[in-house]
Design a protein around this nucleic acid. Structure first.
Lengths: 211, 211
DNA sequence: ACCTGAACACCGTTCAAGT
DNA sequence: ACCTGAACACCGTTCAAGT
């Protein structure tokens, strides 16, 4: 049983299986992955160059799922939609996030997102340097929020000063995800309001789309 | 040469040596660490329960260095100082941050910070639920910014649309750190302005210190 | 109490060998 | 072209043994 007539493996299939393991256990191992795919560990290396390579493919898969807004609406609204889509796709695989906080990489999907953000800020009247800073701020906030959602830095559960309603919500298990999302939206609106203010004060010429 | 008259190791010394390795290489290994300390790998386990334990101690050491503001000033200014101190202590060991994005832990130092933040928001007129959200937002932003500073998600270096001055700054190597810090301050001010607005609208009773 | 050396189960990766 | 099994260098951790 050496070479099957049709390949048992492929790069995307490997990434999928790895993503599945990470969603379940928060990490993955080459032997684990091979076992899950019914294959020997060394076989994987016919389709993939290294474990890091697999992590990168998972990032690409996650980022590729982002729902991006149609261009042409209000620029602040565009920012809001991108940020939410970004966050949502992170939220689908929370365990994955810590895995790629180490590398600096940008795959095609990530580039697409940055490009749309840059366009939106340009439409809002931001100069190059300003929109660079603004994009970084937005990106940092989304990433930080996603990490917090994955592994909340606090156990608020037992806080006695909380309102009864909140404590009730906290004790229901599902609240964790919801609360993270609500908090994310709250912070996002703070940032967007700031961007709005700054944009409006500079935005005289250039009515709508700037490529 | 079995037991020396005075111990060659101690928990804090191990954490320090590990922190030094991480600052240099971005990771550390038990054999590496043992070698750096002139000791056999198994010796470490007389002072430390696991590798994760060492990571936790490093977190504590990093958080312990935070310079916290005197209580009593303007609450927004207090928030600003805490956030900056927080960020500054992260910035001292950028390679360390990815290491503890996996665990959820809170050591004494982290608790101290949260407590001060809670007091500041209370002084600003925030209710319990609101300040919970606000603290999370601030925390997420600082963490995301620190991660971005450690491993910028973009290589802006070659952007032709940048101003000449910016590109010049970028090409000088030191700019990376400075730019990350400037961007952090920019985003922080956006958030603080939002908090300020929200706080002022609710802050009638309760003149100064609460708790 | 504290360090050593040998040992264990595991990991990521390579490579000759098979078809 | 694609899978296997054996092999390599490494890892984190345990534990009996020494003093």
């Amino acid at each position: 049983m050496a070479r099957p007539r049709s390949p048992k493996l492929s790069a995307p299939a490997i990434a999928d299986a790895a993503l599945c393991l990470v969603d379940k256990h928060g990490e993955f191992t080459i032997p684990q992955l091979a076992k899950a795919m019914g294959v020997s560990p060394s076989s994987l290396y016919n389709h993939v160059v290294s474990k890091d390579d697999i992590v990168e493919m998972m990032r690409g898969a996650a980022m590729g799922e982002i729902e991006l807004p149609e261009p042409g609406g209000d620029w602040v609204d565009t920012l809001r939609q991108i940020a939410k889509g970004y966050m949502r796709s992170y939220a689908k695989h929370p365990k994955l996030i810590p895995l790629f906080t180490a590398h600096t990489v940008r795959d095609e999907g990530t580039l697409r997102v940055y490009d749309l953000l840059a366009r939106a800020f340009a439409a809002g009247g931001f100069g190059a340097a300003d929109s660079l800073a603004a994009i970084t701020v937005l990106d940092s906030f989304v990433l930080g929020s996603a990490l917090d959602a994955a592994a909340p830095s606090q156990v608020w559960e037992s806080a006695e000063e909380n309102s009864a309603a909140l404590n009730a919500a906290l004790e229901a298990g599902l609240a964790v995800q919801d609360r993270a999302w609500t908090t994310f939206e709250y912070g996002l609106e703070l940032l967007l309001a700031g961007f709005q203010l700054q944009g409006n004060s500079t935005q005289q010429e250039e009515p709508s789309r700037t490529a």
